[in-house]
């Protein structure tokens, strides 16, 4: 398969790769340049028709009946879904549907909000993520996170990347920094100014720096909470390209409000909506449908999903 070292800078090639689940390579030649999302959807659907069992992979997370509340108000209710290894899993839905809340439970970032509580079970490779002996710090070492707004540390580019390996007591810091920057396709842009403050970078570079920073501690999963919402289209494209490469090494969960993005980058997509109770005083998020991305965007089972992806609502 092409580009397995993942360092090509040609976006079209990489997008082709991202939507490249087939065995015969036929779709690849059909020209991913026209409509990447659509090409990809067809590809996935075809694969399913040809009988590849897409639900039989290794599971990273098993989310079972999870309800997350702030105080006594539920932010998202009764979510059940499995998240698979070396895939990109997208969470989409209108704002307020709890997708960010949900993703923050996967590496226990919600612990930082004292009023937040998680009911139900989240298994990480079969281990209860919220078990009594589980250490959130250890969890976050293995499950990294990239945030909505780029949040580089107010330090040099080098120190931004080196921070994680240093606190985790890793060695060969220089090598790790270079490797992470290369992995995030940032090395060529910054190799001559590693000592400059990271605040001097563009927004897109800052976000890729944050991705590199996460890669440098070698997690198994990378969670991305709307990583491109603060970025321009070109930077967004670069990060989407990056994701396609990253899933070779990592499992990725991404929250996005951008449906095209979900269609372009993800293997599976979960669609959440905002539910209101009768009095409209309480609102919470609920999982409507979770399936392969192609299916969600071309042939959803639920009418609400169809209305959302076709732009009728939302």
């Amino acid at each position: 398969m092409v580009g397995d070292t993942g360092l090509s800078n040609d976006p079209t090639e990489q997008l082709g790769l991202a939507g490249q689940p087939n065995e015969d390579g036929q779709l690849h030649t059909e020209g991913p340049k026209e409509d990447k999302g659509l090409t990809r959807q067809i590809a996935v659907t075809r694969e399913t028709e040809s009988g590849g069992d897409i639900w039989a992979k290794d599971k990273v997370f098993e989310v079972k009946d999870v309800t997350v509340s702030y105080g006594n108000k539920a932010a998202v209710k009764d979510v059940t879904m499995d998240i698979f290894q070396n895939e990109v899993t997208a969470l989409i839905g209108p704002s307020g549907c709890g997708k960010s809340t949900l993703i923050r439970c996967l590496n226990r970032m919600n612990d930082l909000v004292s009023s937040a509580s998680v009911d139900g079970e989240i298994l990480y490779h079969g281990q209860d993520l919220y078990g009594p002996k589980v250490d959130p710090v250890q969890v976050r070492k293995m499950i990294g996170m990239v945030f909505q707004k780029p949040n580089p540390f107010p330090k040099s580019i080098f120190d931004n990347i080196a921070f994680g390996p240093r606190v985790l007591g890793m060695d060969d810091i220089d090598d790790r920094v270079e490797k992470a920057l290369r992995g995030a396709a940032l090395w060529d842009e910054v190799k001559d100014r590693l000592d400059d403050n990271a605040y001097g970078m563009s927004g897109g570079q800052q976000q890729r720096l944050c991705i590199a920073r996460t890669m440098a501690v070698e997690p198994e999963v990378i969670l991305m909470d709307e990583p491109c919402s603060a970025l321009d289209p070109i930077s967004t494209g670069k990060i989407e390209d990056l994701m396609a490469e990253l899933k070779e090494e990592f499992s990725i969960v991404i929250v996005t409000h951008n449906m095209q993005q979900a269609a372009r980058v993800s293997d599976k997509t979960a669609f959440l909506i905002v539910e209101l109770d009768a009095t409209e005083d309480n609102r919470w998020g609920q999982l409507v449908e979770y399936d392969e991305t192609g299916k969600i965007f071309t042939n959803p089972r639920d009418q609400r999903t169809e209305d959302y992806v076709t732009g009728k609502v939302g």
């Binding site: 970032m109 930082l112 070492k141 293995m142 540390f153 994680g164 606190v167 985790l168 920073r213 997690p219």
Partner: peptide, 8 residues
């Protein structure tokens, strides 16, 4: 958040 998410 950035620091904690790295496992610090």
């Amino acid at each position: 958040e950035g620091s904690l998410a790295l496992g610090a």
